[in-house]
């Protein structure tokens, strides 16, 4: 499949801050790609480079087959963007902002605009100054979703939305995917990424630390197992890839690395498996594991262990 966004070795510094330090990102046509990372890891900076708002220091960046800095205007006709911090012109109404952004981008579908206003329950007549944070967010979302852009770049698009609107947003993204359009979605909300994304990239300190489908990522990480056995399952702690073992007479709980799952299960079967429950890691756990050492370093030992 062809790449809509391909970034490799991207470096961006602000004075002495190295915001991006060799970042890689590959977004394929037609997928919803989750772009995850803790605060200050460089998500918004990457997106601004992709939009030609910031100039890269090193690395290669291709967007929709072009150079995001040089071909900015041409490329922007084909994408729609929702900024992380939506600030609007205080005296211009929401409806006017939506139309304006649509026209600046080169057109939007009026039917879809009306439908989205309905779905997001947004009053377009209010001046932007009188909108709440969530409603400002909705203005930017409607403007982006009403376009026929082939790529949507969304920087934490649901911050400030209530749970009902969050659900509306998710169904809109499903529609976008069904249309075969591509979405880059930066997010803190892992449940949202789990629900929406085909693939995710996790970044930290301006570097990509993991990237792949959720399935692939899960294989790289641990599964939690709780099992009851006929005989006490001794010797589990000698197996490779087993962590956090807690055992009472006939009951064990532990985490096991994806590639050692089979050996651990065989060991349990040998002890006479009576019941077994296993939970694949949630993105939350992936995330925590990825940053666990950071948290542990910060003195928060409860999570890393």
């Amino acid at each position: 499949m062809s790449s809509v966004i391909s970034v490799s070795g991207l470096v961006k510094t602000f004075g002495r801050t190295r915001a991006l330090d060799g970042l890689d990102l590959d977004v394929r046509a037609g997928e919803v790609h989750g772009f995850l990372g803790p605060n200050g890891s460089g998500k918004s900076t990457t997106i601004r480079v992709l939009l030609g708002l910031l100039r890269k220091d090193a690395g290669t960046v291709r967007l929709l087959g072009g150079d995001p800095w040089r071909d900015a205007v041409l490329l922007h006709r084909r994408l729609a963007y929702v900024p992380g911090d939506v600030t609007l012109w205080p005296t211009i109404s929401g409806g006017e902002v939506i139309d304006l952004l649509g026209r600046l981008r080169g057109g939007m579908d009026p039917r879809r605009r009306a439908e989205l206003l309905e779905r997001f329950d947004l009053d377009p007549r209010k001046k932007a100054r009188t909108y709440s944070k969530g409603n400002r967010q909705k203005v930017a979302l409607v403007a982006a979703l009403a376009s026929d852009a082939e790529l949507l770049v969304l920087d934490e698009p649901t911050s400030g939305l209530d749970p009902i609107m969050e659900a509306t947003f998710q169904s809109c993204i499903s529609d976008v995917r069904a249309d075969g359009r591509t979405v880059l979605l930066s997010s803190h909300i892992l449940a949202e990424a789990e629900a929406l994304c085909d693939r995710v990239s996790i970044i930290r300190h301006g570097r990509t630390v993991q990237s792949g489908t959720l399935g692939e990522l899960r294989r790289l990480t641990r599964t939690s197992i709780t099992a009851e056995t006929v005989h006490p399952a001794t010797g589990l702690d000698t197996l490779p890839g087993v962590h956090g073992l807690r055992a009472t007479d006939h009951r064990v709980t532990f985490d096991v690395d994806g590639d050692h799952l089979e050996g651990a299960l065989r060991h349990l079967t040998d002890a006479g498996l009576r019941s077994l429950s296993s939970a694949p890691p949630t993105l939350e756990e992936l995330f925590l594991r990825q940053y666990g050492d950071e948290l542990a370093a910060a003195g928060d030992t409860g999570i890393g262990s």
């Binding site: 211009i92 939506i98 304006l100 026209r103």
Partner: peptide, 15 residues
């Protein structure tokens, strides 16, 4: 502030 317009006038188009 009075409520604004529901849709942008034609003049509100380019930069």
């Amino acid at each position: 502030p009075r409520p604004g317009a529901e849709a942008a006038p034609p003049s509100l188009a380019g930069p």
